[in-house]
Design a protein around this nucleic acid. Structure first.
Lengths: 341, 341
DNA sequence: TGTTAGCACTCGACTACTATGAGTGCTAAC
DNA sequence: GTTAGCACTCATAGTAGTCGAGTGCTAACA
């Protein structure tokens, strides 16, 4: 267990390093004034902290740098989340006062605000989950054999695609099918759609439609590739601001990951209550070993709608970012509430 | 006017520089074998080419580098567009064989293919122009005072937003209004919508709806902020591959531009026939003075639907990129044709 | 007149060497 | 337990010297 003084010194080292991105020496800490100790004493403590794995030395004659373990301890035990101080927290509401919004734009806006205020990279994972309820299906013919299908969920999310109508199904039949779906399947969660489809309406369809088999598989495919997850990245170039990412090769590897949305979704990972922090090697992906990811989920009606996150170097201002995420995820939930209700 | 030999040498310098990104010396050109000339002779020619402004010297004892003017001459007069050679051109069709597509996904796919094959950064400007025709308007209530409005254009583009219904308009009235719009305004180009709205249906609405004024302005605002232009960027990190963009500060400035979609739209600029090339300082934006932008428009039914472009260093393989764009813009037009018809 | 060999010259890139100084670890004294 | 003192380490910056690719120019050659 760390002594009280060790904790203070660890915190001081981290705060200094976060600010200046330079290894911190004993003399620097001593001069900060919070301690009435000589550099030599600090040095001894830092030596111990290094032995315990909370600090690291890039090379013999450099100062100390926090290790992942150090940051972890700082986040878990030393950080005062209630230090809101007079810090400016952005007001999301002011960006969406308009009475016209698409949800996409609200999310986009949030990503932008977050990356601008934090000066880090923002990732938002929209969890367009199959738990959402079907609100409406619409089929609009464009030409004889093409139509656009529009799906609306109960949260107002709209999905559309253009489909080619199989030769042996008539437009009339299709329209009838869609009507039946609207009558019988509204309010069903998307993930139950297939089952319910068979259970409840196959019979009805059977009466109305020829070529039963073909039609069923057609309808199934309508829902098939509704995007389950959707990623929005904001301020990717903020990554290049960080002094630890001046190496082009390294930063390229990271930015490339940000372009691969599916992989990114896996890394941002599954929702949890409150603000989550993953530091350096705690990210299972080796490429993100020099990064920390802070995330928070946003909700609507008790239902998890997605995760907003910040990606930055392990030398991150955890306090600021965590407060920011706490604040924005709540605001986002509230905004969605206001939109839906 | 350049002599035949000067043209050959200019082309040789450019091709070598494009390939190796190193200033090209007279000896290198001489050794290439295409010329039966000594380095000294080549040197004299290169001296002249520099005087004429087609080549530049980074410093006295370095080889030559093409200037913007040199590239321009190369693109205009020396490049054989018909050198298709046995070069592999990607087949866009194979990525969209599926009978289910959203146009968004086709565009996205195209951007990805283009950036992967070219190894440059891709920009696609979707010109969701107001020339498109209204196909359908749909209003779906979500709660008492919220509804999602869906606009579908004749090209199958779907736009949606959530609106708040003003207190003094009843849902019933709204539904009636939307019905009238669907009856009377389908087939009207979006940019004429406002005028037609007043001309053709104000009268009808007047009979059906109370609070005429309010309702009209509500309807107007429905269409108000349909996104006119929409930008998709692919392979942004390819920028970091280029040896001329190893300087983090410089590349950050460029990548930041790519995040600002409106500005980007202005730079990609207005459509024109065939493949367009803008080299270095020909881009009016100072930040893109080290870049070249090659663009081509894609069409549907004689109507310009957007522009696909490649962004890279001025040291770009113009031949390859231009052929690629020529090919892909045609294929994209064809694909859209296939989807719509 | 066009081409080429020869040569002095330029200048960035690389290497080797030398301070410089921040920071450490250790010891001994307080 | 704390601190002053001191030798030691090592990255960084600066300087000097070498190397070599490439040039421009001149004179000779076909």
């Amino acid at each position: 267990m760390l002594t009280e003084r060790q904790k203070l010194i660890l915190a001081a080292v981290i705060m200094d390093y976060v600010r200046f991105a330079e290894p911190v020496g004993s003399r620097t800490i001593s001069r900060r004034g919070d301690f009435q100790l000589s550099p030599a004493t600090i040095r001894n403590e830092m030596y111990d902290l290094e032995e315990l794995g909370y600090l690291q030395q890039p090379h013999t004659s450099a100062g100390r740098v926090p290790s992942d373990k150090g940051y972890r301890f700082y986040v878990d035990h030393l950080l005062q989340m209630d230090q809101w101080s007079a810090e400016h927290l952005p007001d999301l509401q002011q960006f969406v006062t308009d009475s016209f919004f698409s949800i996409e734009r609200v999310i986009q806006q949030t990503a932008q605000v977050l990356s601008q205020v934090s000066q880090y990279t923002t990732v938002i994972l929209k969890n367009e989950s199959s738990r959402q309820l079907l609100r409406h299906v619409q089929l609009l013919p464009l030409t004889e054999r093409k139509a656009v299908v529009i799906l609306v969920t109960s949260t107002g999310h709209v999905e559309n695609k253009i489909v080619e109508i199989p030769d042996d199904i008539s437009l009339d039949e299709l329209v009838r099918m869609v009507n039946v779906m609207n009558e019988k399947l509204v309010g069903v969660p998307l993930y139950q759609f297939r089952t319910k489809l068979f259970a409840e309406i196959s019979e009805v369809l059977n009466h109305n439609v020829n070529k039963y088999e073909k039609a069923m598989s057609f309808i199934e495919s309508l829902l098939q590739d509704v995007q389950e997850q959707n990623v929005v990245v904001g301020g990717a170039t903020n990554m290049l601001r960080q002094p630890e990412f001046q190496d082009v090769g390294k930063v390229q590897a990271i930015l490339e990951q940000l372009e691969q949305t599916t992989k990114l979704a896996r890394i941002i990972g599954h929702p949890a209550d409150g603000v989550q922090v993953r530091i350096g090697t705690e990210n299972n992906d080796q490429i993100f070993n020099d990064c920390s990811i802070v995330t928070a989920s946003y909700h609507y009606d008790g239902q998890d709608l997605g995760t907003i996150g910040v990606l930055g170097p392990t030398r991150m201002d955890y306090g600021k970012v965590m407060r920011l995420l706490q604040h924005l995820s709540t605001q986002l939930s509230e905004t969605l509430d206001r939109i839906y209700k």
